[in-house]
Every structure is written in structure tokens, then in C-alpha cells.
Amino acid sequence: MSIELRTSPHQVSDRSVPTIMKHVVLSLLPVCAFSVWQYGLSALALLLTITATCLLTERLLNRSAGQPSTLGDWSAAITGVLLALTLPPSFPLWMGVVAGFVAIAIGKALFGGLGFNVFNPALIGRAFVQAAFPVAITTWVPAFSAQRFTELVPTTLTAPLMMPPEIVDWVKQQAVDAFTGATPLARWKFENVVASTYDLLTGAVTASAGETSAILILVCGLYLAARKFMDWRIPVAVLASAALTAWLFQWYDPAHYPSPTFVLFSGGLMLGAVYMATDMATSPVTPLGVWIYGAVIGVVTVMIRYFGGLTEGVMYAILLGNALTPFIDLYTQPRVFGTRQQGKKK
């Protein structure tokens, strides 16, 4: 029997960053599969292109900085997949490449790589293309069209730097019933039409790939939370605060504001709460801080949806939450054992 002598820590968890990240990627696969089943080849092409761009950018920047490759930690893959899920399935591939590059280069590498980034890289990429290409990012195609596995949406293969073609006529040919070209949130905001919860749950609405599979995302999130790969408090805080805010508004004026169910299951709230707000590098570490962080995101999301110029507010709400994270951490530090809290007398 040999005794190994060494200094602490003596017990090492087998949970490394790559393990956690790998499980997050795996848990995203069902969501990806659902989106491909829903939207067909275009969604698949977008997913693959953006993920490849993210991985390539990460590798190139590693090389130019003279660092060892960080592809193995799977974080670039997560960024790519999440980014693709937040974009419309008809998004031109070249714009997807721009988004992926910005996400990794500006959102992550510029800050020093994984763990140093202040904001969620996928959301930085999305925010950039939202500001750069406001028309393309709000052009939607119907789900479950008949030819989705045989032909691409005409906008997918737009030549680089060129404007995507008008697809109104193409969409009409697809002859999907009751297609309006607007997301449930946009229809609520501008036409006061509230989509049925059943449609929202089954994905029979127009939206970006990651917005239409709330139940699936919830299930995958439960898996991650059960295996402790993510902090369950964050999604719970985000969803609870959003639901509570929505419920308050509905109680105040039921004619004008939709139900909490609509708020929870429409738009990207589910994806944002489960996969984006929980990004370890950009969320607080203390339990109390996590609750505050989640609540801020939930409330701001609903506020932007109700009173902002945009139809969806999850992205900016999470980015704001990310920006607040260092301060939340600072003010919710627990007392170190055996010390007195500053300014308090015994």
C-alpha cells in the first residue's frame, strides 16, 4: 500500500468545466433536433454554420494569441448552438457567420476568454446582428411547411454582404394556414392578439427556433438542474419574477395585459432563463445574489415587452443582468466565519 503525500485539496471533484459544458451541449441536442424537424434544412444549415464559425473563430484567436486550443472546453460550441437557436430560421447564413464571429471575438476573446467575459457571448452576437440587420432578424417563415426537408428558404443562401430577397411570395406558396409573418409577441403588441397556450406549447407559432419549444427546453433544463450542472435558482427566479410581474399587470388591467402563461411560454424567455441567464461566468455566485439577479432579469423582460419599442426583451434583460453581476456579488458577500461585518459593532 502506497501513501501519497500532498497538500490540499485532498478531494477533487470529477466535475471539470469541459464535463459540465459537454452536458449542456448534449442537453441542447433535443432542442436542436426539434427545431430542425420544425423548420427543416434552413434551420440545420444555420445551426451548423454558426457553430462552425464559433469554433473556427475560437481556434484562430487562440493561435494568434499563442495560446493552446480551448476548443476542448466545449464553451464555443454552446455559444454557437445557443446563438443559432435565437435567430430566425430564415436568417441568411453570411449574417450568421458575422454573428458567430462577433460573439466569440468581441463577446469572449476580447475579455480574455472563457471565465473572463462580462456578457453572455451568444447574446452579444445576437445583439450585434439585431442592431446591424434589423429587417432580416424580424423576417419569419412558417413552421412545418411541406417542403422544409427538400428545399431551403430563399434567404438562407443570400450572397455575402447582399440583402436577402423578399420572401413574401415564397411564404404564400408554402400555403401554411394562418401564417402572419409575426411572432406571438409582435401580434400581441401590435394587434392585441394573444396566441393560445396550446399553440405556444406545441410550437405551432412563428418564432426563432429556440422560442418554439418551451416544454422541451424545460425538460432539458430539469435534467441539467437535477444533475447539478446548473444553478436551479436562476431559471426559477427569472420565471417566477416574470410570471409575478405579468400577473400583477393582468390583475390591474385584464383587458390590456396578457396572462402569465402567455408571458412564460412566448418568446425566448424559456431559452434565456434556462440556458443563457445560467451562464456560469456571467451570473452571480452567492445564493442571495442569484435570486436578485434572476428577479431583475424577469422583471426587466416583462417591462421591455410591455413598454419598450421592441417586442422581445429577454436578450437585453439578460445582458443588463450580466452587467449587474459584479455589483450583486459585491453586495451579497456572506460574512467570512470569525470576522465581523464592516461597520457593525458586536
Binding site: 441568411p92 450585434f128 442592431a131 440587420f133 432580416a136 454582404l161 447582399m162
Partner: peptide, 28 residues
């Protein structure tokens, strides 16, 4: 805008990067 000195560089189908003429574009 896809132009330099008002002369179009990429033809009329160019997709402008709106963010570039907004303040954030200046910082980028």
C-alpha cells in the same frame, strides 16, 4: 451604406449594416 464618397461599391442589393451608422458602430 455600401458606399464610399456616395459611390455605391457593391451594387444595389448590398445589405447595409445599420449598426455602423449608429453610435455603437463608432465604438466598434
Amino acid at each position: 451604406a455600401g458606399k464610399l464618397f456616395g459611390i455605391s461599391l457593391f451594387g444595389e442589393h448590398f445589405q447595409p449594416w445599420v449598426v455602423m451608422v449608429l453610435p455603437p458602430g463608432g465604438f466598434f
